[in-house]
């Protein structure tokens, strides 16, 4: 939630679960509460929805794709030609912006979980650890086990084979991170300044370091990267008249 100057007044992150309408309602109410606004006073507030469920938010005045919103959110922090890389739970995208913030090109990952948060979730569960633990292991590793497969299920099988062969856990997790980085680098050239967003980056700072090592330009992460898409949506809501 923003004021007309673009200052962030409140935000909220809610797991969508299976009840999209109630999840969006909770997210909106929580964000309003964080901004100190009562739900009943929210009448005049413009709402733009984004992401996979964007068409199902009944209170929204308009919707924009997450591609538009991540681009907009990142550009608000870095108003220059940038390459935005959003590593989301379901998909990943690379978006190229020119110096005036216009999208030149975007690319989404192909139809599978490779290179997304879903891949990390699956692997964490196979390794019997929570998602939060992955980062620590990857950072602590002094070697890396190669995970070659594109496919999440085959990668999991590959990991089991590595465990049987005696590879150490940290080195496996480092290999898993590397796999995510490889999938991202295969999507499109990461040119110029690279801005990383999305929940995966927010929770796994070591992944950022690994990407930075593999690209030529600088790599930056905006504050609260899991909110960049929402910020972009809010900026659209502020600037655009109701549909």
């Amino acid at each position: 939630m923003l004021d007309s100057d673009g200052e962030i007044l409140g935000s909220s992150v809610v797991r969508t679960g299976i009840d999209l309408p109630s999840a969006t309602q909770t997210a909106i109410s929580d964000a309003l509460a964080a901004a100190g606004v009562k739900d009943k006073d929210a009448e005049g507030i413009r709402i733009v929805s984004t992401g996979f469920g964007r068409k199902n938010v009944s209170r929204a005045d308009a919707s924009k794709t997450e591609i538009a919103c991540h681009a907009r959110g990142c550009y608000s922090f870095y108003p220059e030609a940038i390459t935005v890389v959003d590593i989301g739970g379901q998909d990943s995208k690379v978006i190229r912006l020119d110096a005036s913030g216009r999208r030149l090109h975007f690319k989404m990952n192909r139809k599978c979980a490779a290179g997304t948060g879903a891949f990390l979730e699956e692997i964490a569960s196979r390794l019997d650890m929570s998602l939060d633990e992955l980062n620590g292991h990857a950072a602590a590793a002094d070697s890396e086990t190669t995970i070659g497969s594109y496919c999440t299920v085959f990668a999991a099988t590959e990991i089991l084979a590595r465990i049987r062969a005696g590879a150490d856990l940290a080195s496996i997790v480092r290999g898993v991170f590397s796999s995510v980085v490889n999938r991202i680098l295969e999507m499109a050239p990461l040119e110029g300044k690279v801005v990383l967003t999305g929940g995966v980056v927010a929770h796994n700072p070591f992944l950022v370091k690994m990407i930075a090592k593999r690209v030529e330009g600088s790599v930056v992460v905006p504050p609260e990267p899991q909110l960049t898409g929402a910020l972009g949506a809010a900026l659209f809501a502020r600037d655009e008249p109701r549909d």
């Binding site: 996979f52 924009k64 794709t65 997450e66 591609i67 538009a68 998909d91 216009r102 999208r103 975007f106 989404m108 139809k111």
Partner: peptide, 17 residues
């Protein structure tokens, strides 16, 4: 969902350029 999002984003992009 993925294809439709990409098409929508492409049209948004055309609107920008």
């Amino acid at each position: 969902e993925q294809v439709q999002t990409q098409i929508e984003a492409f049209v948004e992009q055309l609107a920008e350029v």
